[in-house]
């Protein structure tokens, strides 16, 4: 009976939302970017006088006077145009993980989850794989401004290597204090770069470095630096979560 009423409620909500939203939602065929912020971000014309104008010039590999020089527009939105969001997001992760540590840190008497003892092949190959996975994670977040991916994805991959070590070696133990220092250090650097923006250019998180040519590894000013910091922070944080959830011996 409870399920029946739940279904009725849910259908009512669906009807309510759908009936109100559909007539005004420009669904994908009419979905043009002409008057949206997204177009301005794509064209990199935020500070122009007429931001919504059509531009028709080659950006990739040539343009070096564009305001925001990451080839990956999603990265440019996340790390530059809406960088304050990313600061908040990184802090959300940081705070949630502090909460996890506060909750789980107390009950650590022999709470490690042990799986079947890994065999020799797993044990040995994980040691070989570890640097490769970490390197791949670093690659992802260093190239975040040119290719898909970035700090969050790369950081998760690095944390996955820690997870692999926990599964493949029963006596593995992460040095979590170092991770905490790395986490704090990268967060503080993020803020310091932001404050440097105020001191040098007058706005929080404003870019003050040379922009370079779009598509090159060294381009985009602050964007790669901040994304690397985010990557380091996320990898440290998620590794700490792995540490807390797997438990100590």
């Amino acid at each position: 009976m409870k399920k029946f009423w739940a279904i009725i409620t849910v259908l009512l909500i669906l009807f309510f939302l759908g009936s109100g939203l559909i007539p005004d939602l420009k669904i994908y065929k009419q979905n043009n970017l002409s008057q949206k912020t997204g177009k301005v971000y794509l064209n990199r014309t935020v500070n122009d006088d007429s931001p919504f104008k059509e531009i028709d010039k080659k950006l990739y590999g040539e343009a070096n006077d564009v305001e925001n020089n990451a080839a990956n527009s999603v990265t440019s939105v996340i790390v530059d145009y809406r960088a304050l969001d990313t600061l908040g997001e990184v802090t959300v992760l940081f705070l949630a993980i502090t909460g996890v540590i506060a909750l789980l840190g107390k009950s650590k008497k022999n709470n490690r989850i042990l799986f079947e003892k890994p065999n020799y092949i797993l044990n040995a190959s994980s040691k070989i794989l570890l640097p490769l996975i970490v390197l791949f994670g670093f690659y992802i977040f260093i190239h975040g401004h040119i290719t898909p991916g970035g700090g969050f994805q790369g950081g998760t991959i690095v944390a996955a290597s820690v997870l692999m070590m926990y599964f493949a070696q029963n006596n593995y133990k992460l040095k979590n204090n170092r991770m905490k220092v790395l986490e704090s250090f990268s967060g503080l650097s993020f803020l310091i770069f932001g404050l440097l923006g105020i001191f040098i250019m007058g706005d929080f998180l404003q870019n003050f470095l040379e922009l370079g040519i779009m598509g090159k590894l060294f381009s985009g000013g602050l964007i790669p630096i901040i994304y690397i910091l985010v990557g380091l922070k996320v990898s440290a944080e998620l590794s700490n979560v792995v540490y807390e959830f797997m438990g100590e011996e």
Binding site: L87, T91, N177, K180, S184, G187, L188, I198, F199, F204
Partner: peptide, 25 residues
């Protein structure tokens, strides 16, 4: 002296990120 309201957000965050390092000491 900077007079930006963003400082009201940044200063506590700065303190927050500083706390784990200080805690180890």
């Amino acid at each position: 002296m900077i007079n930006e309201p963003v400082l009201l957000i940044v200063i506590p965050l700065f303190a927050g990120f500083l706390i784990p390092i200080i805690y180890l000491i």
